[in-house]
Design a protein around this nucleic acid. Structure first.
Length: 132
RNA sequence: GAUUCUUGUUGGGCAGUUGCUAUCCAGGGAGCUUCUCCUUGAAUAGAGGAAAGUCCGAACUCCGCAGAACGAAGUGCCGGGUAAUUCCCGGGGUUCCCAAUUUACGGGGACACGGAAAGUGCCGCAGAAAAAAUACCGCCCUGAGCUAGUCGAGGGGUAAGGGUGAAAAGGCAGGGUAAGAGCCUACCGCGCCAGUGGUAACACUGUCGGUCCCGCUCUAAACGGGAUCCCGCUACGGCGGGACAUGGCAAACCCCACUUGGUGCAAGGUCAAGCAGAAGGUUUUCCGCAGGGUUUUCCCUCGGACAAAGUUGUUCGCUUUGAAUGCCUUCGGGUAGACCGCUGGAUCACAACAGUAAUGUUGUGGCGAGAUAAAUAAUUGCCGCCCGGUUUUUAACCGGGAACAAAAUUCGGCUUAUAGACAAGAAUCUUCU
RNA sequence: GCCCCCGUAGCUCAGAAGGAUAGAGCAGCAGUUUCCUAAACUGUUGGUCGGAGGUUCGAUUCCUCUCGGGGGUA
């Protein structure tokens, strides 16, 4: 597996997985409340896999803005997922995560850049890593 | 030269690193081994002019048979273009603006632009009256009466004037009259018909336009014929002639002409996986000196009647079924994975020819996304563009900015949103010759 | 993706096959009552009828475009 890649196997794609995540998952917020992450930890699993999703509500902006936010999330996750894999393999667990914007939308932040998104995603990943 | 508007084109470029999707090639591994799957690497390609809104039109799909009548919906000057259109091009008409001004000629814009003389309905307030005109003020004639006047109850005539209104029953001039009026006349206007030009819408020219009836294959205020009324002239035999009758609204109902079956890629098809059925309703037909079997109060086929279901607005008509693992309605259960459809086409670029143009024909060359919780990205450097600041004001450095917006079966239009750049045209202003 | 609906006062809704002062309830404000409050009663404020064009003498109503919200569909 590539160290900094993100293949389609590492993405949540089925409706069942989304229902499991949103019905019984926990929520973590970044310190500025700009972003949030919903995550579900399955303990004593033999798969040791991590699956991520990037969800942006339709009300927060138009298609161009939503696509950009999702791509920035994906880029941030792709570069920083290594620490999570170490914990998952050590604890023998599986993990599902969905990242979403919380207070940020197109009207209050028309242009958004990676240097704003990346530190807060890293913070969220560290919060989740502490709970495994 | 500046500003504004319209139309068209364009919608930053190059390189590096790390990723994603598709196609293809190579290596490794697994299996049910001419095939499929997993994994690693290389190459190539990877959002728009509107991809948007979903307002029109098609291709394609299945249902179904589309046959008729009625209904419903849509379209509406004429011609052309197109696969087709509520689109585009050209022309006509109406209307507005500019310039000029008496018009005309000229330039530009807008227009859902069939029918109001088939019928129905509506036209608030104001006004006398709003569509068969019951005359408010006024004008004119007449005049009971008495207080004898610049009086005037009542009766009649009058749509020229006033006032109201979005709109007042063709306009204007002359004649005429008691006062007036298409009451009469000229010109303009309205409409029918004919001729000329035009494919046509329409334009120009000319004739005609009382009332009733008949005719012309339909229609007729006006084309033909007859009757009748009125007016004028008359040599009394006739001859000549006739103001024009109905405001607006059809994006009110409606009439006329034309068009339209529904459904929309979550259409539709194949494979895999998976589950659980239940309740209710409906129909145990009839006839036939038709044919066959033959066990002859039986069964099958055929024809007819009847019933049920379907035919996605209704009726007729049509199709299927009539006892079976049926049909209909309601409730409930399971799955939401893969593949096809899925991108080469009314295709794109260039050139020539035809055409006023939209567009078409021919030739040459090209292949340019195919995702599905949904790829097409992130970041760094340099160049180019714009803004601000500093300094040695030609330049350099520093900081900031660059619109609207992302395919989802595919095309053709329309509409709406758009920073900047380029080209062409028009209008206005200024400067020079 | 496709197909449909709805926008009227601060809130929930009426209204019409075009006529102008657009209604009702709740809420708000003022008053009566009460020692004070609530309740009750009386009066009153508040609307460019989502936005822009068009038809018409006249549009909340009819037509077109547009903005926002909601629903259905394997």
């Amino acid at each position: 597996m590539k160290r900094f890649g993100l293949s389609s196997k590492e993405r949540i794609k089925s409706k069942n997985e989304f229902e499991l995540l949103y019905s019984s998952g926990e929520i973590a917020f970044s310190s500025s409340k700009k972003f949030k992450a919903v995550f579900f930890i399955q303990r004593n699993s033999d798969k040791n896999e991590i699956k991520a999703a990037f969800a942006v509500s339709r009300k927060s902006g138009n298609a161009v803005w939503r696509n950009r936010v999702k791509r920035l999330f994906r880029e941030s996750f792709r570069l920083n997922k290594g620490a999570l894999y170490e914990s998952v393999e050590f604890k023998n667990a599986s993990l599902l995560i969905a990242f979403s914007p919380n207070s940020v939308n197109q009207t209050n932040r028309k242009k958004i850049f990676l240097k704003e998104v990346l530190p807060e995603i890293v913070e969220l990943i560290n919060q989740i890593k502490a709970k495994i």
